[in-house]
Design a protein around this nucleic acid. Sequence first.
DNA 1: TCCATTTTTGAACACGCATTCCAGAATATC
DNA 2: GATATTCTGGAATGCGTGTTCAAAAATGGA
Lengths: 192, 192
Amino acid sequence: MVGRPKSFDETEALRAAMLVFWRRGYEAASCDELLAAMGINCGSMYSTFGDKRALFEKAFDLYHREVFSKMAGIIEGEKSPLENIRNLVKCWEKGMTESACRGCLVSHTLIEFGDSDDPIARRAKTLLEQVRLAIEKQLRAAKRAGELGDAVAPKDLASMLVNTAQGMTVMARAGADKSTFRGIIRSTLAML
Amino acid sequence: MVGRPKSFDETEALRAAMLVFWRRGYEAASCDELLAAMGINCGSMYSTFGDKRALFEKAFDLYHREVFSKMAGIIEGEKSPLENIRNLVKCWEKGMTESACRGCLVSHTLIEFGDSDDPIARRAKTLLEQVRLAIEKQLRAAKRAGELGDAVAPKDLASMLVNTAQGMTVMARAGADKSTFRGIIRSTLAML
DNA sequence: TCCATTTTTGAACACGCATTCCAGAATATC
DNA sequence: GATATTCTGGAATGCGTGTTCAAAAATGGA
């Protein structure tokens, strides 16, 4: 390989872009803002990632790998089924009270692209459904193990938990403070 | 007053615009789409409402009056405090399963304007906080009346209920079906 | 040192979309 | 019927923002 070497790390730039999309959503993230965060200029971005949309999809991939894989690991954790779900909820609390990027990129994507038949919307929907299914599976196991009352419907509860996570994205935009999130989490844990 | 009379009903046009904003959000609602729904053209719109932003604020007002006032009425209903809150949750279910415009205009507004110090964002935040407070008030009354267990924290539960409503806006964009919403509602009602 | 190759830089471009503008149309008053 | 006034239609405008492009810069190999 000959020629001028890249002056930036591709993955680091992508991560910086992901953080901007995470905070701002797709539309609101202007190229200027993205490029400033990535520390490169448009030429480099376009030759490396394609265009804004392609960059977003790669950022979405990264989010998928880093954030959702971590979540899947917690759901399929080593403790008892119910304890794993409780840990998931606690992990959400952490994300909402400690991280600078609060909320969820997937929620943003759904709000922005949800009513179109855009492929990225379908991906986001699938992702959500996978999480719901993983939670439901554990709740069923918890029920079998007697950790959960007979009256509880695993599917309903799983939908509700996913819904709670989505809600907190909006609440984060609403400027909800830490104590609000702690209250939401406390109430949620009270069901488990 | 002399001159050519308006060929459209102002309130009806505004309501049509509100429905578009409700479905699409502010940015995604193009002028073309708005004008088509309103049944007028840009000249009439600009002379009547100002510009797109002013139109949005008037639509937000209308939403505030029609949707949130109705909600406030349910919260301060005639039944017992807890029953009122249960009715509110059931009303949400109705909104998510029956209405063509699912989700909440306020949630959209928060997602789009939440991280700016835009006045419209502040209005949306205030609105949400008012609802939370109204719910909390009823939950306190319910607790005093012995309708609610001692372990329940009214503030936490109120935050959680508001959060649930916000979540369903995202879920609606995620194309969640009626049974999903019914499940969420069932799980929520199980706490009350 | 010179060439081939790839990346960087930032100004120029293109395009969509909100907005404006004005000629024409509809009404009330005189 | 003439005039003043207000509304309508749609083409034209302007602006913001994503995208392109060409020249300059940085490397390895001959």
